[in-house]
């Protein structure tokens, strides 16, 4: 008997009579204004949130505020490598549209701009579906996620309800910049992944 059969048989013998699956939660907390809650939690876990009404507004903000601030705060000098998997930023970001590129070549990316499918108010997690380059939201020094305000749900149950079984080969909930508190419980942002996360909440686009 191979290990597979051995394990399955042992499990079969050991498991009790089938017990029922519970029903879904009756009334999980919902927020009257999920966007407000989302913003509050996002800031608490170290993200920055900007509300905008158009893609142009994002571009303006990126150029006029985000990049100068980034350069000042992190003392980044010279030309920063900015890449985007989201269309519309060709003016100042490298457009990534092929998954055939060796992921290692993204190790010098300073800023990555990507889209999230939905956001969750209770924990500020954003669902980032299969990206063209899986490692991109992790390997970049700073991450920017764009999300439509209308997609913000209250809690994780609603998020999975929306997502269903999903079409993605890979996907991640991302909540904040990467962090660690392994040294004496002191919180440090920027463990292995991005040092910062900026979220652009996109409102009604005319």
């Amino acid at each position: 008997m191979n290990s597979r059969e051995k394990i399955l048989q042992a499990v079969k013998l050991a498991q009790p009579e089938v017990l029922p699956l519970p029903t879904a939660l009756e009334t999980p907390t919902v927020y009257s204004d999920p966007v407000v809650k989302f913003t509050e939690v996002a800031q608490a876990v170290g993200s920055s949130v900007i509300e905008v009404n158009s893609l142009e507004a994002i571009e303006d903000h990126l150029k006029e505020v985000y990049l100068p601030e980034l350069q000042k705060k992190w003392q980044a000098s010279g030309k920063l490598r900015v890449v985007s998997t989201s269309v519309g930023f060709e003016n100042f970001a490298e457009q990534i549209d092929s998954s055939d590129i060796d992921p290692h070549t993204f190790q010098d990316v300073e800023v990555a701009i990507m889209k999230a499918d939905l956001g969750v108010a209770e924990n500020s997690a954003l669902w980032v579906p299969e990206t063209i380059i899986r490692v991109l939201p992790f390997i970049c020094q700073h991450l920017i996620l764009l999300v439509d305000k209308k997609t913000i749900v209250s809690n994780m149950h609603q998020a999975y309800e929306r997502m269903g079984l999903g079409q993605d080969d890979y996907g991640a909930f991302i909540a904040g910049p990467s962090k660690t508190a392994d040294i004496e419980q002191s919180l440090v942002l920027g463990a292995h992944g991005p040092r910062s996360l900026w979220i652009y909440l996109i409102g009604d686009v005319e």
């Binding site: 969750v120 209770e122 997690a125 999903g166 991640a172 990467s178």
Partner: peptide, 10 residues
Amino acid sequence: PITTYSSHFK
């Protein structure tokens, strides 16, 4: 409220 990353590998 949640870990920074909850990655779904399919």
